[in-house]
Amino acid sequence: MLGAASLVLFGLIVGLVVGLYYAWLVEPVSYVAAGPSRLSDEYKEEYILLISQSYAADGDWEKARRRLENLDDPNVANTVALQLERNLRNGEPAQILNKLAIVAEKLGSRSSAVALFVPSRGEPVLTRPSQERVSATTTLLPTPTNTSRATRSAAPSSTPTEKPSSTPVPVFRLLKQERICRRNTPIPLIEVVVYDAFLEPIPGIEILVSWEGGSDHFFTGYHPENGKGYGDFTMEPELFYRVELADGSTPVDGLQIENCGAEIGGFAGGRRLTYQNTDVQQGSSGP
């Protein structure tokens, strides 16, 4: 005959299992006053994105920091940097990436993706077309063969002489266009290399690629092993591509996969486009 203790123990175990089953599966605790830390990954990403966009709009870092603290994430800098990388791979627009990178950088992240979008003070600064720019010295490299680029005659001067124009002026000129082949290896790539006026490679430059029925974009600097100014895009067979830089360049049309010579295997080859930024920033460290 079983003793009383054994019977109680048996009941206890069965009761425990039933109680846990009910508490965890049938009627779990329902939170109705959760914080952002309880959000699903998808909504956490949305929350971080909103924080970065709000910070870009109001510039209130204290508020942004408080909001990030609500995520209860001990490594929030890394979380934001990883979200930036995911967004990069998903082809999100540059404005979104830039705002995320600024927040990640403010949190102390120093990942390569962050460095791409938040250049440090020592790196060259790109300038957009403005009335106050001067032409870069064109003797740095041989004259480009592309003649369709608008010519500018503004001489370096403290008084801007260039008249405002409604026609966008290319900021980058095509220095070189070359065919690329690799022995016994297909390389159906559009490779783009971007330099500044002083031939320093520039990361974070957005390149727009379009073809009949589609478009995409990519950035330089995401393959640091090939140089900070390098970016590439894989072409599909039987499509013709058009490439231009988002900040302004003469478009290059008709790029397609071209088979390389039989002597090196006859595999698919691509094109390498080299651009130079024709703008230099005015040396105005002071007012």
Binding site: L7, V8, L9, F10, G11, L12, I13, V14, G15, L16, V17, V18, G19, Y22
Partner: peptide, 8 residues
Amino acid sequence: GLILGAGV
């Protein structure tokens, strides 16, 4: 035992 176990 059941009551105690369920409570726990």
